[in-house]
Amino acid sequence: MSETPILQIENLGHSYGRYLVIRDISLAVAPGELTALIGPNGAGKTTFYNAVSGHFRPTRGRVHFNGRDITGVPAHKLVPMGLLRSFQITNIFPNLTVMENILVPLVLHHRKGFAFLPSLRRKKKLYREAEEVLDKVGILSSAYRLANELPYGDKRLVEMAIVLARNPKLVMLDEPTAGMNPEETERMIHLIKELATRFGTTFFLTEHDMKVVFSVASMIYVLHQGVLLAQGDKEAIRANTAVREAYLGGSARD
């Protein structure tokens, strides 16, 4: 980890009233490295995720992104800096075509949101860029279908494409394979890996599915009851006795 981390979190803590959900979490995400945060349900993953991605201001600690302090900065201001998030539930524009779904972030990326006179159709460059993004995630063939009509797994891909279209420096994924069947999960894992290796997109994902994490992430943090229990690559995590006891229940033989 000689490179400066793109995301650096120092002593992050958050409490609801007197109830401390997460405490004293410090971690770093290196550019290009697939980093994952795992933990069972209720470990505080979502709280952590929301505190980092600008959903609310954490009660303690600091978040640095690309060298800037972004603690408590609301999500929509993080987007132009290059930090994007996806959602556990499918979060797309249902009654627009897949192409339009991707054009929305592209229009914003090119700061054309208030351009009310030029024709969108004539913006061939935007369409080309949208096609590229759709090609990256592999749903170019559905470009002119309504997003709503796609199967569930494809909708998640549309969402991924929306995020990628803003050309992010860091993508935060919240349980990217939640609710997917094995085949769709396989496709998503493959996609994440490919995006990371071929296009250099940096991902930070939270996940409770151990298999997914072990097959994509090169750096893993384990969250348990609001505190970091362990960190390291997958061999180190597999070998860690504390993790085995607390999280795997000693039965992780996969």
Binding site: H76, N91, P94, E100, L103, V104, P118, S119, K123, L126
Partner: peptide
């Protein structure tokens, strides 16, 4: 007619469809 077919027009339909998503890709 020009307005609804412009990039701005697309933003408006995106507000109708999912304003939260739109905010999370950086729109005011």
């Amino acid at each position: 007619w020009r307005v609804v077919r412009s990039p701005f027009g697309l933003m408006l339909t995106a507000i109708r469809e999912n304003k939260q998503r739109l905010a999370f890709v950086g729109a005011g």
